[in-house]
């Protein structure tokens, strides 16, 4: 059974249909990318899944349970982890404390007034950080961390409640190309080992074509293509509204319009 099922989701703002009848599903361990031009409705779609927006119509089901329109914190309690386009961590706490907070919240122990945090849920938080190669950064304040490391902290926080579904909004935005590959490869391996379904939006075509198992393309609120990377890349409509003939993002096999040379297909070496 699919982990996430989205059925005929719809949302309008002031008469404009931002998302129209979008349906799809994500299987356990699958990496599904949601792409499309700016204003295509990706964020709106995403925000209806994580609870920030209430859909006008349609259903969102997590392992068969209806989670449509639940508040974000309730969606999280149902087992949905999130990372943000612009990292959101607790800057006045250390990396370890950030992860501890997620664990404490998961175990509903945030109302405690007496036991210091220093003694709560340390071991599991440390284990999680070790899995993300962040053990040596555990004691550093989040406020002074490098951007790439912050993205990893976000991932650790998102994994703290043993999620069934991970929603990642532009997970590699603002990272160096090298780090992008590392983060996505790590995400994919954790997703496979724990059977977590991953849905992500992304503008970097190397990341999309290199790490997604399947791709959804959204344009003006509607799904216009869905399928494995090779199929989507060849789709003429997708090329027209989104990918263009061009060079940017350097997706594989693309022709460079300026010099007419063929760019090196990078995702082949980085990917599957």
């Amino acid at each position: 059974m699919a982990t996430l099922e989205v059925d005929k989701l719809r949302k309008s703002f002031g008469g404009v249909q931002a998302v129209r009848d979008v349906s799809f599903a994500v299987a356990p361990g699958e990496m599904l990318a949601l792409i499309g031009p700016n204003g295509a409705g990706k964020s709106t779609c995403f925000n209806m899944l994580n609870g920030q927006l209430r859909p006008d119509a349609g259903w969102v089901r997590l392992n068969g349970q209806d989670i449509t329109g639940l508040a974000p914190r309730k969606v999280w309690r149902m087992g949905v982890g999130r990372t943000f386009q612009i990292t959101a961590t607790f800057g006045s706490m250390t990396v370890l404390e950030n992860v501890q907070m997620a664990l404490l919240s998961h175990r509903r122990r945030l109302g405690q007034l007496w036991t210091p945090v220093a003694r709560a849920d340390r071991a599991p938080a440390e284990a999680l950080l070790a899995r993300l190669d962040m053990a040596d950064q555990a004691a550093r304040p989040c406020g002074i961390l490098a951007y790439g490391d912050l993205k990893r902290v976000e991932l650790a926080i998102a994994l703290a409640n043993d999620p069934k579904l991970l929603l990642m909004d532009e997970p590699t935005a603002g990272m160096a190309p090298q780090e992008r590959v590392g983060l996505m490869a790590l995400t994919a391996s954790i997703a496979r080992e724990r059977g977590i379904a991953v849905l992500f939006t992304e503008h970097d075509m190397d990341v999309v074509f290199g790490h997604a198992d399947r791709i959804l393309v959204l344009d003006r609120g509607a799904l216009i293509a869905e399928g494995p990377p090779a199929e989507v890349r060849a789709d003429p409509r997708v090329r027209e509204v989104y990918l263009g003939a061009g060079f940017s993002g350097g997706h594989p096999g693309s022709r460079d319009p300026v010099r007419g040379s063929v760019a090196r297909p990078k995702s082949v070496q980085g990917g599957h």
Binding site: G36, P37, N38, Y242, L243, G244, G246, S248, H251
Partner: peptide, 14 residues
Amino acid sequence: PSEGLAPVVVERMA
């Protein structure tokens, strides 16, 4: 100027 833009838009920007 190209950060976060769709490939087609990046082309127009260029």
